[in-house]
Amino acid sequence: MRLRGYRGSDADLLAGPWLPGELLGLPLADWPPLAAPTTVPPPADPGQELCIAPGLGFVRYTELDWVHRRARVEIGLHGVDGLDVLLKTVVAHGFLTLNLSRIHGWVTPLVDPPIGLLADVGFQREAVLPEATWLDGRPIDREIWGVVRND
């Protein structure tokens, strides 16, 4: 798999029923029909790298910091097929194409993300932040997961 650059025709992929900023933004089955979908803006400046995973969704490297060579990654997917391959591609694109040293992102345990797939590509749980976001009428915990390039 290879990520490709965003085009205006991909705009529909930038909104969906997943938590904002989520490293593994997968569709939540119980998202209320009248709740606004989460959206990310189309890329318009060098401060973020937004790529399209063909047939799946978007991968956004944001909070890009070229001094510290790191980025926070958020992914929004409209399906779960091929997630393992996508995550390998996300790490490879971050480390090799963007030449980052570290990528990290938010994981929300309550929505039961497939963290085993994250661990398979080198991500580790680095911090647990209580009450870091809001879902379904209450504050819930969030975790920071990250992977560091070793070379």
Binding site: S101, R102, E126, V128, L129
Partner: peptide, 21 residues
Amino acid sequence: VGVLPRHRWQNYDWQDVLVYV
């Protein structure tokens, strides 16, 4: 509540960041 490894580059070296709550 956690450590973000090699989150910063300073003084010619990587530096961890500690997370407190």
